[in-house]
């Protein structure tokens, strides 16, 4: 190849210009490297610091929003006198009971609808219709049916949990690969064997996605239900605090809700990591 004169007058000889690709050229090194975790934590710290400064200087009155320090102190007192722990336990129990009823219910309904034609006709159509009901709007009816006790709160949670779990599980069953069923036939798996070895494992990812949604919905509904009418639980604690302008207690309640939600999400994520190790994307 001969030499060419480029537009800017530079001489170019023997083929195209070459560049070196290496780690350095692709991701230029920063001079100071702060670990990601610390950097993210610093953001949170900054926010809480600003909040504390606003409270201490009186810009933010305690009646509007208690400062982080006051919230921490109140939280600690509530733990020590047992109020918070017992309220937490009551709330957690409601969510767990709701899930314990809703999860098997949704699973059985999804299997019925997904695996049998009669089930599909009888179960899926009404489920697809009912899922557009705003669950929280059922509250007045639920109170008429179950009163204002635990049964009302739990049944509201059951309603809320069942739909996302049903939809996700049913969709996963519908998306089963027919070639896997063919395989099951050629290796002589019976109906139960096919369900156990092919259907259930294949549906598990969809089911767990549904479970995560369900857990989130369960907490959401609990917060709502406990603030309408309750005589115990975290929501009750917060409503009572509202009457006495105890914003610190309200913030403690919010924090506990958030932590419990985070915890249940972590539990499902853990299950996913353990049970879905086979997935190509993991």
């Amino acid at each position: 190849m001969s030499t060419t004169t480029l537009g800017d007058g530079r001489l170019r000889s023997h083929g195209p210009e070459l560049v070196t690709l290496s780690r350095e050229t692709r991701a230029p090194r920063r001079r100071v490297r702060v670990p990601r975790g610390i950097e993210r934590f610093a953001g949170v710290l900054l926010l809480v610091g600003a909040w504390q400064v606003a409270s201490s200087t009186g810009m933010l009155s305690a009646d509007t929003l208690a400062g982080p320090f006051a919230v921490g102190k109140t939280g600690w007192h509530l733990v020590q006198d047992g109020t918070l722990t017992s309220a937490m336990w009551v709330s957690l129990k409601r969510v767990l009971t709701g899930l314990a009823i809703g999860v098997p219910l949704a699973t059985v309904l999804a299997l019925l609808a997904g695996l049998t034609r009669v089930g599909d006709d009888l179960v899926d159509a009404p489920m697809q219709m009912l899922r557009f009901l705003p669950i929280i709007g059922l509250e007045p009816l639920i109170v008429l049916w179950f009163g204002i006790g635990d049964a009302a709160k739990i049944s509201l949670i059951v309603f809320g949990v069942t739909f996302p779990l049903y939809i996700n599980t049913y969709t996963a069953i519908r998306a089963l690969d027919p070639r896997h069923f063919e395989l099951a036939r050629t290796v002589g798996l019976g109906r139960m064997g096919t369900i156990r070895r092919v259907v259930l494992p294949a549906v598990l990812p969809g089911f767990l996605t549904g479970l995560r949604l369900a857990a989130a919905v369960a907490w959401l509904i609990l917060v709502f239900a406990e603030q309408i009418n309750a005589t115990n639980g975290i929501g009750y604690l917060m409503i009572k605090a509202q009457q006495f302008f105890q914003t610190d207690v309200i913030v403690v309640g919010l924090a506990v809700y958030a932590l419990l939600g985070l915890f249940s999400d972590a539990v499902v994520r853990f299950l996913e990591r353990k049970a879905l190790a086979w997935q190509p994307s993991r």
């Binding site: 290796v187 002589g188 070895r197 598990l204």
Partner: peptide, 16 residues
């Protein structure tokens, strides 16, 4: 046609 959720040996003895 391996089942992605079954380990190699489990796949081989499937239905056996």
């Amino acid at each position: 046609r391996l089942l992605p959720w079954a380990r190699v040996l489990d796949t081989v003895v499937l239905g056996l």
